[in-house]
Design a binder for these strands. Structure first.
Length: 264
DNA sequence: GCAAAATGTCAAG
DNA sequence: TTGACCTTTTGCA
């Protein structure tokens, strides 16, 4: 479930449940044995999130985690049960534990290595130190359409396939619009909306992009299919104009959009 | 029991 | 542009 909002939320959760505790670090699955040995017994001192990258700090060393498409982190209070499935890394503190499964990346890195990995990332809407102007300068030079640029983590860090589709629909912009035709004002609007949506996602732990009037309530809870305007709604009517939503591959993923109102 | 899908990225051709 | 990789869950025999 990992777009940037998930990672920032995790950074907070892990900090509040495990920071300051000396941790037992293991790799039940066996693919992080070396790293676990380096960190076992150390105290978790910091957590940090940049786009979709999570860093867990142990003084001068960090664990760099990238969940990829399938990775998951499970944090819970109390004592851990026997590991179930492929647990790459397990952290056990006095009051809580963490299990990491299926990440693309789980590596011990130094401060310098962390810095160099972060420096390859573009502006993160969830960070106060983000530079959206620099992102705009990069965006304007890309030869690919805006729908592809929004997934390019070296331009904007943290947006994934759900947010890209939803942001473009909310901006009433075609994913096919050439990036050089995205004006400063267009970009300011997209950026501001990204900040708003990702913050809401970080707070709630869910991606909900639709306005309340689009969300039918049943037993007090928004239905899942009402959470989005276009993402995974192929063949259903656009909530703005009624045209059927279409899908197409773009930048190695599927983009969903309304061909009528998002017409450039 | 097995195939397919899922909010991601990188390297090879 | 395609395939490989990481793992769990869901749907269909």
């Amino acid at each position: 479930m990992p777009e940037g909002h998930t990672i920032h939320r995790l950074a907070r959760t892990v900090r509040s449940s495990l920071a300051g505790q000396a941790l037992t670090v293991t790799s039940p699955q066996g693919r992080f044995t070396e790293g676990a040995r380096l960190l076992d017994g150390r105290t978790l001192t910091a957590t940090d999130a940049h786009g979709k990258h999570l860093f867990l700090g142990f003084d001068d060393l960090w664990v760099h985690v990238h969940l990829g498409l399938f990775g998951r982190v499970h944090v819970a209070g109390g004592a851990p049960p026997l590991p179930r499935g492929a647990v790459r890394m397990r952290l056990v503190g006095e009051t809580a534990f963490l299990d990491l499964r299926g990440p693309t990346t789980c590596q011990v890195v130094t401060d310098d290595e962390k810095q160099s990995r972060v420096s390859r990332l573009g502006a993160d809407p969830l960070r106060r130190d983000a530079d959206p102007e620099a992102a705009y300068q990069r965006l304007r030079r890309r030869r690919v359409p805006i729908g592809a640029v929004l997934l390019d983590q070296s331009v904007v860090a943290g947006i994934g396939n759900v947010y890209r589709a939803e942001l473009l629909h909310r901006a009433v912009m075609s994913p096919h619009r050439p990036s050089r035709l995205v004006s400063e004002g267009d970009w300011a609007g997209l950026w501001q909306d990204a900040v708003r949506l990702l913050r809401a996602g970080e707070r709630s732990g869910r991606i909900v992009t639709t306005a309340p009037e689009h969300r039918a309530r049943r037993s007090g809870r928004a239905r899942r299919e009402d959470a989005h305007y276009v993402y995974r709604r192929t063949g259903l009517p656009c909530r703005r104009c009624g045209t059927l939503v279409v899908e197409q591959p773009m930048a190695a993923r599927t983009i969903y959009w309304c061909p009528t109102c998002q017409n450039m």
